[in-house]
Design a protein around this nucleic acid. Structure first.
Lengths: 123, 123
DNA sequence: GCACATAGTTACCTGAAAGGAACCGCCATG
DNA sequence: CATGGCGGTTCCTTTCAGGTAACTATGTGC
């Protein structure tokens, strides 16, 4: 996200795009919107995510008050992540965008194909 | 955007986040939502953008059918960019998110400050 | 007492994207 | 005839998000 700091405009939407524009945050939010989940449980459902990136992503989301981290005093101690109210409301906003994406994806794919057809990948 | 190809999930929302999650697309869409604009006019209002990135951004948006590029037959020929209907509808969806961002930004900043205070930057 | 799970952290590496600057042809005005 | 605007492209360099892998510490079960 560092490259965005180069931009000197300070717009609220960039703040949120810097958070959810990355590869994993949306996935994690989507998953947690279904209910609380533990670290390794998340890893298993998201599959492709590395341990490090799940850790980093969760910490960033926690920092922004979008997810909360709760250590259960089971033995061995488990850690449960869940969306905060703010996180849930962000999930709502994302869903809105997701809906747009789904309805327009076919058209976008068509546009891309048409565009790429006009400009063949010159060798 | 290439790094996202590593992810094997193919979700509509990623498609749109790959487009608008970057540094400039949202800015350009925002600006064009006010009305058509020429290349160098865009450069001047966005200021921080480099010629190259404006070029790349516009081409990507055009590829997805979000903006249209129209060469005016003035002399010298000028090029006018404008939002397509699809682009305008994306602008609507983005505004929704922007609204969320604005209402929650203060809270997020507070959360960040609190979080960072707890974990001082260990030297 | 060895292996495995839970929940991470740390160090190192790489590929792709962003930045910078120069260059292009075209036109027009001084 | 050269300087500047227009609308880009090309090349080079740097940055950094994300991947891999190893390591941590605690606890449980075979």
């Amino acid at each position: 996200m560092g490259r965005r700091r180069a931009l000197e405009y300070d717009c609220a939407i960039r703040d949120v795009l810097d958070r959810i524009g990355d590869a994993w945050s949306v996935l994690v939010i989507m998953e947690l919107s279904k209910g609380p989940c533990r670290f390794n449980a998340l890893r298993r459902v998201i599959e492709a995510i590395s341990q490090r990136m799940l850790s980093v992503t969760l910490r960033n989301l926690e920092r922004d008050g979008l997810v909360s981290r709760q250590v259960l005093d089971t033995s061995p101690p488990q850690v449960e992540y869940s969306l905060t109210q703010r996180g849930a409301s962000l999930h709502g906003a994302i869903s809105h965008l997701a809906h747009w994406a789904e309805t327009h994806q076919p058209g976008i794919r068509t546009s891309r194909a048409a565009y790429d057809a006009k400009e063949p990948i010159a060798s």
